[in-house]
Simulated assay, not measured.
Amino acid sequence: MKRGRTATVLLLLAAALAASAVAGLALGPVRIAPGRVLDLLLAGPGARGGAFASIVWDVRMPRVLLGAVVGAGLAVTGTVLQALVRNQLADPFLLGASSGASAGAVLVIVFGTAAGAGAVGALGGAGVPLAAFAGSMAALVTVYALARRGATMTTGRLILAGVAVQYVLSALTSLVLVLSASPDQMRSVLFWTLGGLGGARWSELALPAAALFVGTGVLVTLARPLDLLLAGEEGAHTLGLDTGRFRAAAFVLTSLVIGVLVASSGAIGFVGLMVPHAARMVVGAGHRALLPVAALGGAVFLTLADLLARTAAAPEEIPVGVVTALVGGPFFLWMLRRSGRGEGVTG
């Protein structure tokens, strides 16, 4: 019965993703009839359709695909982080992982340009994702260490540690920009602090897509250990799980995925908070069903959020991170009030 329910939810989300993708391809400064979009899709990338074919295949398709990939990845990593710290308020953005990844990427962008052929410049195209991963990992480890006291971790300490780390990293990023960045760099780096999908290109889709599919595939195989963590530290130990080693490995994997995604889209907040919670309400807390449902839900959510960002104030474009924050901020406050003050968890 539960498998049938999960399959039904996945089919509905897949249909919603297809519909939102068609809407994303059809709507914008230049509107294209959905029927015409479907014709161009069936004709393939080499379709002859003049400006419409170019708009659909060269401009909007990479953006829609990147939005789906980033949304799915943020939802999956948010789901895993909530299990690792045993707190439903955990999120890549709130725990500083996105800010850490952004700070790492900005450092490479600014100093990598100055380094030219030096050590940073020699990293080439891998420099930004590697720096984003390192920043994401450092932020997560710092927040976890600050929030944990003995065997307990309260919601208050977790959120305060995440906010504190975010402020420090944001200040570091701002300092680097003010002291070292050129005006052109400052305009381009604004992307990292607000998040956006406008720079999507076909050539840049392979890395985030690989990070999503490989990372999600591995995490789905770890569904049982993630479920054991929800039972508590002692229960997980009794059932044979080395919680310390497992948490360390899972933190590294989620940091890698987050770093690659942020390197592609900038810091987009609250997707990893809202979507896992909604998925959990539908299919329960078991991660074998929860992770794929969260992935599809995140893809749908960010695709629609980006569509709203492109069309709400046309011809101007709102950064998609602003849209997700406007939705996620009130949701976070509701979750915080619902969780109760000072609620402790063991972890």
Results as ranks from 00 to 15, higher is better:
229 L>R: 03
205 L>S: 10
83 A>C: 11
125 G>A: 15
208 P>Q: 07
128 V>M: 11
343 E>D: 14
57 W>G: 02
31 R>P: 05
280 R>F: 07
61 M>K: 04
18 A>R: 08
165 V>W: 00
219 L>G: 00
319 P>C: 10
26 A>D: 04
212 L>I: 03
161 A>Y: 01
258 I>L: 10
247 R>K: 13
253 L>N: 06
160 L>Q: 06
225 P>M: 08
347 G>K: 08
281 M>A: 15
273 L>M: 09
163 V>G: 06
281 M>C: 12
57 W>Y: 13
24 G>K: 00
86 R>M: 08
79 T>L: 03
299 A>N: 03
24 G>M: 09
252 V>R: 02
28 G>E: 05
317 E>D: 12
188 S>K: 10
218 V>L: 13
139 A>C: 10
162 G>H: 02
258 I>W: 02
322 V>T: 06
6 T>N: 06
144 Y>G: 08
9 V>F: 07
148 R>G: 10
68 A>P: 01
150 G>S: 12
43 A>N: 09
136 S>R: 02
129 P>R: 05
244 G>D: 14
156 G>W: 07
105 A>Y: 02
155 T>I: 10
278 A>G: 09
156 G>C: 13
340 G>V: 06
133 F>P: 01
133 F>V: 13
268 I>V: 15
299 A>T: 01
95 L>A: 04
143 V>R: 01
6 T>H: 05
11 L>N: 07
206 A>Q: 13
298 G>K: 00
344 G>N: 14
341 R>N: 14
331 F>A: 02
247 R>W: 08
254 T>L: 06
66 L>S: 06
324 T>Q: 05
256 L>S: 04
230 L>I: 07
342 G>D: 12
97 A>W: 00
97 A>M: 10
27 L>R: 08
64 V>D: 01
241 L>V: 10
340 G>E: 14
301 F>S: 02
87 N>A: 10
82 Q>Y: 09
176 V>C: 12
